[in-house]
Design a protein around this nucleic acid. Structure first.
Length: 165
DNA sequence: GCCAACGTTGGC
DNA sequence: GCCAACGTTGGC
C-alpha cells in the first residue's frame, strides 16, 4: 500500500465536502499536469491512503485522510465543455487525463498548517516542502505519513476504520 | 497583488 | 531540438 498527498482548494472542494458527499466518495478529477497524471494512471491503487491537503487558503495545510476506492481511469471532465477542466485536445477515444475515486476516512481535529510541517526536521525531504513544487498529487513515505499522523493529535490509528457498507 | 518556479507552447 | 514567451500554481 502506498501513501499520497493530494491538494484541493477548499473553496472548490474541501474535506468536509468529501465527508458530506454520497457515501463519502468523490471523483478526484481535474488534474492537468503530466507528472501527476502519470501517478494517477500508473501508481495510485485501491486501498492507498491519502493526505487531503487544503491549498490556496489561509492557512494551507493537511486537513485529514482519504482512501483510494477506484484506481486511475480517464477523466470524464476533460470531455465536458461546461467543466473548468475541459480539454479541447481530448476526445472520447483519447482522453489525455486521469482521475481516481476517493472516500472520506478521517478529518483531523485541527488542520496541520503548512508552516508546522516546515518546522519539522523529520519532514525536510517531503516533496511538498521542496521549493517550487507545484504538483497536486505527490507520494508520501511511510515515515512521513506516520510522523504527520502523530502531529494530527488525534486518536486516529491509521488502521482501516469500521465500515457499515 | 506579487512573484518564484516550473510547465507548455510554438516559431524557427 | 532549442528557447523565448507566456500561463499556472500557490505561498506569502
Amino acid at each position: 500500500m502506498n501513501y499520497w498527498l493530494m491538494k484541493s482548494e477548499p473553496d472548490e472542494f474541501s474535506i468536509d465536502d468529501l465527508a458530506n458527499a454520497p457515501g463519502g466518495k468523490a471523483r478526484w478529477d481535474g488534474v492537468r499536469n503530466y507528472q501527476a497524471r502519470n501517478m494517477l494512471r500508473d501508481q495510485v491503487a485501491v486501498g492507498d491512503q491519502v493526505l487531503f491537503y487544503h491549498s490556496s487558503c489561509q492557512p494551507p495545510g493537511v486537513a485529514g485522510i482519504a482512501e483510494v476506492v477506484a484506481a486511475g481511469y480517464p477523466d470524464p471532465s476533460a470531455l465536458d465543455p461546461e467543466s473548468p477542466y475541459f480539454d479541447s485536445r481530448s476526445s472520447p477515444d483519447n482522453i489525455r487525463w486521469y482521475c481516481v475515486d476517493v472516500r472520506f476516512v478521517h478529518r483531523f481535529p485541527a488542520l496541520i498548517p503548512l508552516e508546522r510541517l516546515r518546522h519539522s526536521v523529520e519532514l525536510e525531504a517531503m516533496p511538498l516542502l521542496r521549493r517550487g513544487n507545484r504538483l497536486s498529487v505527490m507520494p508520501v513515505s511511510k515515515a512521513h505519513w506516520d510522523f504527520i499522523l502523530g502531529l494530527a493529535g488525534s486518536d486516529y490509528s491509521g488502521t482501516a476504520p469500521g465500515r457499515t457498507g
